[in-house]
Structure formats: C-alpha cells, structure tokens
C-alpha cells in the first residue's frame, strides 16, 4: 500500500513539493478508493438490504400485528399475541408445536444417521481403488436432483399398492410375509419415509465435505500412530475423529438447520398429514399464509424458526471457538 505511493512521490521533481505532500497521496488514495469501493459494493448491498434485511425487519413487525392478506382493515398492533397463540394457546398452539416437534424428531434421526452414513461412505471412498470415482459419482448424483423431483420419484417407491417398489421389495425379501403397507398414509411411517428420501438426497453433499476433511489430515499422523502400534480402530479414534472434529461439527450443525427448514418433500408428498404427523414449521407458515392469508401469524412462525436456527449457529460458533483455544 505504502510502497507505490512512496514511489510515485519520489518520481516527482523538486524537494519542496515532496515535503509538502508527504502525507496527502495516501489520504487522497483512501478517499478515491472509498468512492470506487462503494460503487463496487453498492449493487450487492442494495440487494441484501432490500431483499434480505428489510424482509427480516418486516417479519418482526408483521409478527407483532394482525395482518390479513386482502383485508381492507389496517394492521393493528397485537404485541406478542401471535407468539402466544402459536406457542401457548390451547386452541391453536397444538398444530405448530407438533410441527416443531416433527422438525426436532426429523433432526434427531436424520442428523446422526446421515452423518454416520456420510462418514462411512467417505472412509470407503477415501481408498485408492480403481472404481472409486464411479462409486463417488453414484453417491453424489442425487445431490444435483431437485428435491421436488426426488419427492415425486419416491412417491412411486412408497406407493401403497402391493406393486409399489418398496412393498414388493420387502415382500420378496421376507418371502411374502410382509404385506403391502401405506408408507405415506400411515402416521407412524410417513415421517420416517420422508426422512429416508431426505437422507438419500443429502448424504452425498455431506460425504464430499467429510471427504475433504479426511484428505486434509496429514498422512504422517497415521504413520506415527501405526509406529506406536495403534490398530485400525485406535487410529480411527485417535487420528481420524480428532482430525475431523470441526468438519463433523459443521456437518451436524448444517444438517440440523436444514432439518428445521424442511418443506419441499412435505408439501409434495403428504401436505403435513396424515393427522399432522409430517407437518413442519415451514409447512405451517406457508399453509397459514394461504389458508386465510394470516400473514402476521405466519411471520411469527418464521421468526420462531429463525430464533432456533440462530441458537444453533451460536452454539456451533461456541464449540468451534473453544476448540481453537485448546489448540
């Protein structure tokens, strides 16, 4: 920064000029850069303010008001009434609380299962076998599939008829002992069914992140552990897991957050049913917006969703920072 400015002044002829201007070029440079920098940053900043920051402020404002779409009445201030209704009111709260519980259950199952599966796949894929790139392609391919399409294909797999793919597969595997089951129509199996297809679609993404983490662990650590007589399991425990610590925390947190944003699969496959067994916070927010146009209440729901995601993010940062202190 200083070097070019200094060079420039030195080429100028005449000592008095140099003395008088010794500090100005840098300041002028800063001023002129400020102009250019704002010009470069402004388009993106305007976009972020108008389409991200403003809606967020609006979400909080809406959640404190009674606002109905297409209603001629002006919004009236409700204080925290919307939050009370969706979280505590015996008449309305049941459904939204059920949605949050479903999000929690989804996270509680999908996060550990998907992470373990991704870790296992990454460990297999991190080996020098010739067919590995092909295998990796297969595992990663679902990631490029839009969730809407994944849901449609799996709707056929879960079909309740005896010639649904899953029903037929189970029937063949058990020699006809298992009879056809309505996977998406039974409250007990609808959410697990959605979990399964979500894992199928999402595991490749995680696997790639973990694979990158694995490859950043120095090979010398494994060599050293092997010299010390560590077995396979010990090397995994002492070298691999600690080396992947941050990656795994990241993956777990991101998957948890995604679990709370669950929407597409539910909208296409079950519309929250049967009997609210698959509804989610986001699905409730959208259906509240459409049925009755209750934007205020829907906004309150998304604010609750945001608070949960924010809490998880802060938790993640805490855990990661502590790790840095220890190192």
């Amino acid at each position: 920064m200083n070097a070019p400015a200094g060079l420039k002044t030195r080429t100028r002829p005449g000592p008095p000029l140099l003395a008088r201007r010794s500090s100005t070029p840098r300041r002028r440079r800063l001023r002129s850069e400020t102009g250019a920098a704002w010009t470069m940053a402004t388009p993106a900043l305007i976009g972020l303010i108008v389409f991200v920051a403003a809606p967020f402020v609006l979400a909080i404002w809406l959640s404190l008001h009674h606002v109905k779409l297409g209603s001629p009445r002006p919004p009236n201030f409700l204080e925290l009434e919307q939050y009370r209704r969706i979280l505590l009111d015996p008449q309305f709260a049941g459904q939204f609380r059920r949605a949050l519980i479903n999000n929690g259950v989804f996270a509680g199952v999908v996060v550990p299962v998907q992470t373990a599966l991704a870790l296992g796949l990454a460990l297999i894929l991190n080996r020098p076998l010739r067919a590995m790139p092909l295998f990796r392609t297969f595992v990663f391919m679902p990631v490029v599939f839009p969730m809407a399409l994944v849901a449609v294909v799996w709707r056929l797999i879960y079909d309740r008829a005896p010639d649904g793919v899953l029903n037929d597969l189970l029937s063949v595997l058990t020699f006809g002992h298992l009879t056809a089951h309505d996977w998406l129509g039974d409250p007990a199996t609808a959410l697990p069914a959605i979990m399964l297809l979500s894992i199928w679609q999402g595991v490749g993404f995680q696997m790639v992140i973990i694979l990158a983490g694995l490859q950043s662990i120095p090979a010398e650590l494994y060599e050293a552990a092997q010299m010390d007589g560590a077995g396979r399991w010990q090397r995994f425990r002492v070298v691999t897991l600690p080396g992947l610590r941050n990656t795994l925390i990241f993956v777990v947190m991101v998957t948890t957050m995604l679990s709370f944003r669950l929407f597409d699969q539910v909208y296409i496959l079950t519309q929250g049913g049967p009997g609210n067994s698959t509804t989610t916070a986001m699905y409730e927010a959208v259906s509240t917006t459409f049925d009755g146009g209750d934007v205020g209440r829907a906004a309150a729901m998304t604010v609750v969703l945001f608070v949960i995601v924010l809490a998880l993010t802060i938790l993640q940062r805490r855990v990661l920072r502590e790790d840095r202190v220890i190192q």
Partner: peptide, 20 residues
Amino acid sequence: AVLALVVLPFEAIAVPLFYM
C-alpha cells in the same frame, strides 16, 4: 453486517418477502 446475514435462512424471510 453481511456476515450476519449469512446466518439468516431464506425460510425465515419468505413470508414477509411474499407480503412485500
């Protein structure tokens, strides 16, 4: 401020954006 916005999931602002 930009980094703070990274945390904000689109789902959290979908409804007000729709209203807007």
